[in-house]
Measured scan of single mutants.
Amino acid sequence: KEMRNAYWEIALLPNLNNQQKRAFIRSLYDDPSQSANLLAEAKKLNDAQA
């Protein structure tokens, strides 16, 4: 469930391009235990690109 939530949050971040989203989501599938960390990194990048 945590992975699914992280997937959708990443997919809906407005300032990431599709390539960036795909990279984060690929990492999510590679290591679901890192969901919270990956989401935090994606949000950080999203904010930096705002």
Rank of each mutant, 00 (worst) to 15 (best):
N5F: 13
S27K: 11
S33T: 09
N17W: 04
K21E: 01
E41H: 12
L39T: 05
Q20V: 05
A6C: 04
P14L: 06
L39G: 02
Q20N: 02
N18C: 08
N5K: 15
S35L: 08
L12A: 12
A40G: 09
Y7C: 15
L28D: 00
N17R: 08
Q20C: 03
Q34W: 06
A6D: 03
R26T: 09
Y7D: 02
L45H: 03
D31G: 03
Q49E: 08
R4S: 13
R22T: 09
M3R: 06
I10F: 03
D31C: 04
N46L: 00
F24W: 02
K1D: 15
A36D: 07
N46E: 01
A42D: 00
F24Q: 01
E41F: 11
R4C: 15
N37E: 12
A6Y: 06
E9H: 09
L38E: 01
L16M: 02
W8S: 08
A6K: 08
R4Y: 15
L16S: 00
A36V: 11
P14V: 07
P32K: 05
L38K: 06
W8Y: 13
S27C: 06
A40H: 11
L45W: 03
N18A: 09
K44F: 12
E2I: 06
L39I: 09
I25G: 02
K43H: 15
N46P: 00
K43M: 09
K43P: 00
L38G: 01
A36E: 09
A36S: 14
Q49N: 11
A36P: 10
N17E: 07
Y7G: 07
E2F: 04
E2W: 02
L28I: 06
L28W: 03
Q19W: 10
S27G: 11
A11H: 15
L12G: 10
Y29F: 11
I10S: 00
S27W: 14
D47Y: 11
I10L: 08
A40C: 04
P32W: 08
Q49F: 08
A48S: 15
E9M: 15
L13C: 03
S33I: 03
I25E: 02
K43D: 02
K44R: 10
R26D: 08
S27L: 13
Y7P: 02
L12I: 09
N18S: 15
P14H: 06
D47Q: 14
S35K: 15
M3Q: 11
N17C: 03
R4Q: 13
P14W: 05
A6Q: 07
A23M: 14
Y7K: 08
Q19D: 13
K21H: 02
R4G: 10
E9V: 13
W8P: 01
N18W: 05
L45S: 03
D47P: 01
S27H: 13
D47C: 05
L45R: 03
D30Y: 10
M3Y: 14
A48P: 02
N18H: 13
N37I: 15
N17A: 06
D30C: 07
Q34K: 10
N15D: 05
F24R: 01
L39E: 02
S33V: 08
M3F: 14
P32C: 03
E2R: 01
L28V: 07
L12H: 15
Q49Y: 13
N15R: 04
F24Y: 09
Q19E: 15
A48M: 14
S35G: 10
K1F: 13
L45A: 06
N18V: 08
N17S: 13
N17D: 04
N17H: 10
K44W: 11
I25R: 03
M3P: 03
N18D: 08
L39Y: 05
Q49S: 09
R22Q: 12
W8E: 09
S27N: 10
R22P: 01
P32V: 05
A48C: 04
Q34V: 07
N17K: 07
N46M: 01
A40W: 10
R26I: 09
R26V: 10
L12V: 09
A6T: 12
P14A: 10
K43E: 04
E9K: 10
I25W: 07
S27Y: 10
L13W: 03
A11S: 13
D30L: 15
A36T: 12
A50N: 13
A50R: 02
Y7M: 12
N5D: 15
L38D: 01
K43Y: 12
L12D: 06
N18Q: 13
S33D: 04
Y29Q: 08
D47H: 07
K21S: 01
L45D: 02
A36M: 09
Y29A: 05
P32L: 05
L28H: 01
A40V: 11
N37D: 06
L12M: 10
K1H: 15
N37V: 12
L16W: 00
A48E: 08
L38M: 06
K44D: 08
Q34M: 15
R4K: 14
M3C: 07
Q34L: 11
M3L: 11
A50P: 07
L39F: 04
S35Q: 10
N15H: 11
D47I: 15
S33P: 04
I10M: 02
Q20E: 06
K21G: 00
F24A: 03
D31H: 13
L12T: 12
I10Q: 00
K44P: 00
S35E: 06
Q19L: 11
L12P: 01
L38W: 04
N37A: 04
D47K: 08
D30S: 13
L12N: 15
P14C: 03
